[in-house]
Each structure stands twice: as C-alpha cells, then as structure tokens.
Design a protein around this nucleic acid. Structure first.
Lengths: 218, 218, 218, 218
DNA sequence: AATGAATGAGATTTCATTCAT
DNA sequence: TATGAATGAAATCTCATTCAT
C-alpha cells in the first residue's frame, strides 16, 4: 500500500482503476462467450486469455480460479436479471398487468438480447461443483422470491387467498421453470428468436390462468 | 468356421447373453449412482468400474467411452419416464383427471423413487458435449410431445380451442419446465421429499388452471 | 495325445491337419493385409481375428503373440523370396545373364505380385523389437549371402578378382539396398507398378556395370 | 494491452527466445537418443521428459504430440544431411571425384558421427503413421533429387547420355538405397564402425562403375 | 500488473493377452 | 479346438495453476 492516510485519488490512480475494471469485464465477457459456445469444460483458460487479449497470468490476477470465473459470471447475470425484473415487478405494484409485463420483459429484453447468458444460467453453471451449485441455488432462490413477492402482492390486490401455505412459493418456482425451459427450448435448442415473442406472450397468459385457478376469493 | 445360418441358440449361448445384459445394467447403475452423487466430471471411469465390480476394460467393452455411458443412461431414463407417463396419459383418455394423475405420478412415482435419475436428466446431462446435448434435446422433445398430445385430447374433449397455433406446444413445454424445476428445487436442492407430495399436487392444480385460461369455448 | 504308438493317421486326422494348416495360413494372410495397409502398430488382434473370420482366442492358439505373428510372416516372406531368387541364381550358374534374370525376377515376379510383402519386409518389420530385428537381420543376411555367392561364381567365371576382401559382400549388400529402395520408391511410395518393369531393368544394368568396375582381370 | 506495432525486442525477450530454442533442441536430442536406442514405440513421453530434464507438460508445450516429435526430428536430420551432401555436391561441380567425396562424406562424417540419426532416418521413422510416412517420403525424395542433379552434371561433364529417360532418377534412387543399407548393415546391425571406412570406399567405387555402365559416349 | 513457460497430477482410452466355458 | 468376455497395465495427452521475470 503506497500511503497509509486516505487521500484524494490522483488522476492516474483513477485511470488505473478504470482500466482494471475494464480488463475485469473483458475477461468475463470473453469467458461468457466461450462458455456459452463451447461449454465450461471444453473451454480452457488459455482460450479465455486469448479472446480477452491478455495472458493467462492476468486472468489469474483478476479471478482466483476457473470456478471463480463462472461464479462471478453467474453473479453478474443474476444481478442483471433481478435488476431488470425486480424493477418491473415494483412498478407493477400488484397488478396482473405488471406481472405480464415482467414476464414479457424476460423473454424480449433479456433472452433475445443475451442468449449466452441464458446458456450460462440454465446450462453451463449446472452441476459443476458443490460450491457453484450452492451459488446457483441462491441466485435462483432470489429470483423465485422476487416472483413470489409479486404474486403475493397480486393476491392481496385481488383479495384472493392461495390454496395451500406453499402455494405462492410453488407457483413462483413453477413460473421460474416455465420461463427457463421456454427460453431454452426456443432460443438455445430450436434457435427461433423470431417466434420467442409470440411464444412468450402465450406463456405469460398460461401463467396468469394458473394463478387464478390456484386462488379463491376470500 | 462359424456357420452363417442362424440356428437355435444353445443354452449356454442364452446364458451368456443374459449375463451380458446384466453386466451392462450393473455398470449403468453404478455410473448412475456416481454421476448423481459426485457429478459426471468428478466421477472417473475407475470409480465406475470399481462400484460395478468389474475392470475398466470391461466398462469400455460395454460402452464406447464415457460419453456413451451417460448417453445410454439418458436413453434409459427417457424411456422409463415415457413408459410411466405415456401409459398414464393413455389411460386418462383426454380427461382433466387423467392429466392430473399423470403429473402426480411424475412426482410421486418417478422423482421420489429415483432422485438420481432426476439429477442425471436435469443436471448432469446438461452441457457436456454437443452430441449429448442433441440427444438430451430429443428426449425432452419426445416427452414434450407426449404432454402436448394429451393436452390436445383434453382440449378436444372439453370442446375448447387454444389461443394460438403454438399454444398446445408452449403449454407442453411450460409444463415440462415446471415439473423439472419443482423436482429440482424440492428434491435436489432442498431435499424435502416429504413435502414433494403436497407441492406436486399444488403444481398440478396450477397447471390445470393455466390450461383452462389458454382455452376458450368454441 | 490319443495313442502312444505311431500309427498311420486316419482320414479324419488328415483332414484335421489340413484344416489346421489352412486356418494358420488364413490368419497369416489376414494379418499380412492389415499390417501392410494400416501398419503393425495400428492393427490390433481383434481386427486380425475378424478378417480371418476366427476369434481372438484362435489367433492365440496358432500364434504365441503378436510378435510371433509378424515373425512367422517375415519367415514366410524370406523363404518365398529365397526360393524364387535362389533357384534362379543356381540356374544362372555364374553367368552375368543369370544375374540379370534374377534381378528382373525380383521386381517382376515378387514385387509386382506381392506389394504387401514388400511393405512388411521393408517397412513394417523394421524396429519393432530386438528379437524381431534380430530375425529380420538374419533374413537379410541370408538373402545377401545368396547374392554374394552368385557374385563370386560370376567372378570366378569371368576370371576376375574383386578389389578388397569385403568387395563381394559390400556389393551384395549394395545390391540388396538398391532393390529394396527401388521397390519401395516405385511401388509403395509412388505406386507406379507399370513403370517398375523398365525401372527394374535399368537398375539391373546399373548393377552389372558396378560389378565390372569393382573387378579387375587377374 | 500489448502494442500492435513491432518494436525492437528487449534484451529479456531475446534471452527468453534463446532459452526457448535451447529447450526445444534439448528435448529433441533426448528423444533422438531414446528413439534410436529403445525404439520409437518403446520410448514413452515420460522418459523423454526425464532425459531432457523437463516435465511431460513441457514436452507437450514444444511438440504437439509424439508424432510431431519424431516428425520434427526427421526434418532436422534431413536438413543436416542435405546440408552436408548438398554443399559437397556443389563443390564437386560435376566431377566424378566430387561424387566420390560426397559419398565418402556420408559414411565418414554423417554415419560414423551420428549413428542415432541413421537409426531414426532408416528405421524408427518407418511405418509409424501415414502422415509421418508422407513426411519421410518427401525427405527421401529431396535427397534423391540432390543425387540426381549431381549425376546429371557429371553426365554433362563427361559428355555421356543415360540409357533411358528414367536412368538418372533410377540411379539416384539406387545410390540412396545402397548407402542406406550399407550404413544400416555395418553400423546398426553389425556395429563395425572401424570397417565402415573401407566399406564405404568400396561402395562408392561400385557406384561409379555402375554410372559408367549406364552411360554411353555421345 | 502482466507475462507465458513450466509443471505434474489426473483422466481417458487402448489393446495384448488370458481363461472359463 | 474354439470362443469372446474380461483384465489391467501402460500410454498419451490435457489443462488448471504457479511463479520467476
């Protein structure tokens, strides 16, 4: 550490920090592309370094190890997704309409624009190690919580109660699963981005129907 | 010189064939357990051989390579699952009740009794290689088709039409996704087999509601 | 052993022996084809058995091991070659003409009709193991001796003496080398069987000139 | 980010490059010794690494695979040999004397000083793989061309024409074969380095006689 | 901070050979 | 004699990670 006392960072220190951040991102992006295209296990650290135009040593300067790379990637994707959906759910403020909009946003904003992120989140990050699986679980649980909270607010708004104590959670988990597999099926497997819009809307309607059925007027 | 003409197999030939089949299965079972517990990549062929009580060479006598092992495993699991659900869907004969029963069967017969198969199907077989991913896709598509056909029969029975030309397919895909994530969430991640019954029933109700909503009387 | 006393072999014993001999040869032939086409190391015993239409076990009944297979093969090829050339050299009876004929026979009878044998003798049997290399050496030395003896008889006939005590041997070795590389070059590498005739005759003339030069009238 | 513009390499870059070259050579040398002594197939990569005092990984850093190792080795030997003979043939400038000198050089400079290279070129590199065989063929063809060009110059000088259009080529191939087998016979098989001098001179005389015989005054 | 050569444990796979039937 | 499933030692090669510069 140069100085013990915290002083105003100089211009060159600021530039350095900015450059560090950029390098970190460029490595992460390179890895994301490769992991999505070739798979986590078939991508090696040399390739990541190559695509990011740095040396392997540099990759290890920014990331503890290969797992850390996908872990940070997962974190970033989870954060972006929550940011996107979370904001929309809040705006929705308990209306069915808002719920629909959030779902459509997921397909049209997130999936269509970031198919590699879909591949990382729903395929590459699965079953690689216990630690990573734990991380993945937490990210999914947070996303599910967001959905669940929105569901509860919708329920409150409509003055309905859900069938069982688990209902709202199960519904949230189910919705997560639907979104996941639809995105995967039509984007990754069948590569039909143009149809994903219509399909997404159908899916959202399907969900809304499900919600209504599981609830009963109080 | 072996005779070219097919003759009735002798007793010892029959026994040999039976033994071959048994050995094949025992290796497959050993691998299934290990892949589910430790993960595909963290299980090596020596361990598989060890657990199956054969030598590595024998594993390679029955399976071309490691990928072939999980590929055949996937095939078997897909077949079992289709066998279980397919039969039930046929029995259902287009009734909503039958649809429910099939769903419940998935959770209560399949998932609870074969958590390792769930792990293989929904986690370990994901993103290992292009060839395997293709195989996985085909298995999922067949399962989805089964669901879709049942949906269509239900629709016919109830005299309803689905919203868009994709509707029945999208619904089938969604249902697949729900089942998948619910099983994963409550069996693999949270390990709450006791709750899975209730949860499964909620999920099935959720689906039925969704179906009704996407359909309209003709 | 059935009987201790040597009796006239029965008909069925004779048939058996004939069949054994045929099987031995068919395995040897299969191996020869494969070794010549794919190389000794890239051919495995299963393939040999397959092509010979027997089981691996049977191959091991007739041949001690893989090395024994190529060893016996070498033996057979060496025998055939000596048989062909040796006879001709004797017929030649010390004339330059006979010497030429033997050379031409090598190219036109042996090489053109048995290109695989050429590949085995000059390529596949080289550098595989100490024992085999020793065997190979002995076969070459015998062939060289044949040539040398013929050379000496020619010398005697023409009343010439060779330059140094080694001369006849060196000439024989040289001739062997020429034949070997010409056969290899034009048959194996360039696959020009049609030209091999002309080429062979040129080569033989070249040799005869060399012989004359190394000798001096006594 | 590394600058795209080529700048003068720094001292440490130069040293690194030098070290890389040395390491490459030391691995090649280690492999050459082992391949010549134990045979290509009976040498494993661990032994090569051991003798070169590096790790296996390092061997694979410098050479794509085992075949690449012997391939590069062949290249180097071919280059050295052409360098040695080619120069001499040029100096010879079409005289029979020069031709003799080049031949003697082959035995006395090359074979006696580098018996391992002889073993690699004439034994170990034979019949290992199609790709390598192709490489070997090209190296031999270049050496043969060198000899052929020298032959043609000698012919021009002596005002003689060769018997057939193939003659000069066939003679070159023959000479190659003679040299090859003599070296093999007396160095590899009989290990008589002391006699190789006399033998080599005999062989060269033999050739010269052959040349004269195949040519006729014009 | 960045580089990239070096490491070596570890994994997959092959295949000559054996042996019970 | 013939079969072919079983064996397991051995070999090649990969690649995440380290570290001297």
């Amino acid at each position: 550490m140069r100085s013990q006392v915290k002083t105003k960072p100089t211009r060159s220190e600021l530039r350095r920090q900015r450059e560090r951040e950029q390098r970190f991102q460029s490595i992460l992006d390179a890895a994301e592309n490769l992991f999505a295209k070739k798979g986590y296990h078939h991508t090696n650290m040399d390739e990541v370094a190559d695509l990011a135009e740095v040396s392997v040593g540099t990759v290890y300067f920014y990331f503890k190890n290969k797992e850390d790379l996908i872990s940070k990637m997962l974190e970033k994707i989870g954060f972006q997704l929550r940011n996107l959906l979370g904001r929309e759910f809040e705006n929705a403020d308990g209306s069915i309409e808002g719920f629909k909009r959030a779902g459509i946003l997921f397909f049209e904003e997130f999936c269509l624009n970031h198919p590699q992120k879909v591949a990382i989140l729903f395929r590459e990050s699965a079953g690689q190690s216990n630690r990573l699986e734990e991380h993945r679980k937490q990210i999914f649980e947070k996303l599910i919580q967001d959905v669940q909270h929105a569901l509860i607010r919708v329920g409150d708004n409509l003055n309905v109660a859900y069938q069982s104590p688990f209902s709202s959670e199960v519904m949230a988990v189910s919705i997560m699963g639907m979104y996941e597999r639809i995105a995967y099926q039509y984007l990754i497997w069948q590569n039909r981005p143009d149809d994903l819009q219509t399909i997404g809307r159908d899916a959202v309607d399907f969900i809304v129907g499900g919600i209504m059925n599981l609830s009963s007027k109080t």
